[in-house]
Design a protein around this nucleic acid. Structure first.
Length: 390
DNA sequence: TCTGGGGTCCTAGGACCC
DNA sequence: TCTGGGGTCCTAGGACCC
């Protein structure tokens, strides 16, 4: 067993925009943004030409246009991006099977064994070249001894970067970065940390009053400090992405929904989509939720656990309707959502009980299915952050 | 700047059981 | 009597990520 591992974090640059450019070369060198071109629309991605004008992800289209009047706004095409995502994963899996998808456009790779034959940087160059030249997909690759350093490294040079971040370089390369660049520290936590004098990752690494820190970082305190010091999990789990925990569809209505009937009709459509996706994945759900956002942007939600797993539209919609009746308050609605969770494979669902059957077999089977699921999830993984109690 | 849509994980209180 | 302690599940909401 090696003392340390070598991980890649591969990140597709401006992914949605890159897919559009790959499909339509005429778009290259023009500023483009992906999103719905409407009053309330926001951009999911912008290409690097647009970024030079200060256009960013999650920016309202109106603001992006102010900064870049020639911006081409292209509606998203998830089917296309899904296809390119498959090309991406197929390509990197020809290198190694030690690939853990982290999202549609990101992956962690364990290349420790490969590195005995080929220098990691050479390997990264090869992967990057193949994806770029053959598939027109620009990627940045971070190389490090654990997930965190590899991830932070891939962020350091974009697009088409290759960056090595070793533990011994953490002080000079990682510590000077502003704390908001740390993966896992977001918009809400940054002001809290600044209040106690933490402005850089280095400040966090050296912060001594862990008790004070725990007020803001909770159970993650130790893990964050470790990461800031360049430590962290090097475990790559190729099966991780296969476990889906929830499926949901939501929609923001530009003209608010005003009456009960139209809201219910909207929920029907959302439920159809969710149940369709559930069945496509051959899964069954035991928990149904409804999300609602008012015109004032106040979010409310309700969920319910069903007596048994189901993949039936009628059962799910029945739950949705009940939940919505509880949530409904005769006020305009901005967003509605339907989601299902506590998912298991349909093959693990025991058929509906009838009165002649004992109750035990069903519960036992579901229990075993759950147990297997949780064993798969936890087995051989670091105990850190994984909800292991005390 | 005035905020999409898909997710994951965490927290905290309450119900319930032994 | 008027009250322990551990554990699990459920629910609502929130932070964060891409």
């Amino acid at each position: 067993m090696k003392k340390y591992r070598i991980l890649f974090h591969i990140d597709l640059n401006a992914f949605f925009a890159s897919c559009e450019e790959a499909e339509n070369p005429a778009l290259r060198n023009k500023p483009i943004g992906i999103g719905k071109d409407s009053d309330r629309g926001i951009l999911t991605t912008a290409n690097y030409v647009a970024r030079q004008f200060g256009v960013k992800s999650a920016m309202p289209v109106a603001e992006a246009r102010k900064r870049c009047p020639n911006l081409l706004v292209i509606p998203g095409n998830m089917a296309l991006y899904q296809r390119y995502s498959e090309i991406f994963f197929d390509t990197i899996r020809t290198i190694t099977d030690q690939v853990e998808p982290a999202s549609i456009d990101e992956a962690y790779l364990d290349v420790t064994d490969l590195a005995e034959r080929i220098h990691p940087v050479k390997l990264a160059e090869k992967v990057q070249r193949t994806l770029h030249e053959k598939h027109r997909l620009p990627v940045s690759i971070g190389i490090g001894p654990n997930r965190f350093l590899a991830k932070m490294a891939s962020d350091m040079k974009k697009p088409l970067g290759i960056t090595v971040l070793r533990k011994r370089n953490v002080k000079e390369k990682l510590w000077p970065l502003p704390i908001e660049h740390m993966h896992g520290i977001g918009r809400k936590t940054v002001p809290d940390l600044k209040l106690i004098g933490i402005r850089t990752i280095g400040d966090l690494a050296r912060f001594e009053d862990k008790h004070k820190l725990a007020k803001f970082l909770g159970s993650q305190t130790e893990a964050f400090i470790a990461k800031a010091n360049g430590e962290g999990s090097a475990y790559v789990d190729p099966s991780r992405a296969e476990i889906v925990h929830s499926i949901g569809n939501s929609k923001t209505y530009e003209t608010f929904l005003h009456d009960y009937a139209s809201m219910l009709a909207a929920l029907e459509k959302l439920t159809e989509k969710v149940v369709q996706r559930l069945n496509k994945k051959q899964l069954a759900t035991k928990n149904v939720g409804v999300q609602m956002r008012s015109a004032e942007y106040v979010q409310r939600s309700k969920q319910v656990t069903l007596p048994q797993h189901t993949a039936s539209y009628d059962t799910v919609f029945d739950a949705v309707e009940h939940l919505f009746d509880d949530l409904y308050e005769d006020k305009p609605v901005h967003l509605l959502g339907v989601s299902v969770s506590h998912l298991i494979e349909q093959t693990h669902v025991v058929r509906q009980l009838n009165i002649f059957e004992a109750k035990e077999p069903l519960e036992k089977d579901v229990h075993i299915a759950k147990l297997l699921e949780s064993i798969n999830r936890h087995y051989d993984k670091p105990l850190l952050n994984k909800g292991i109690k005390k």
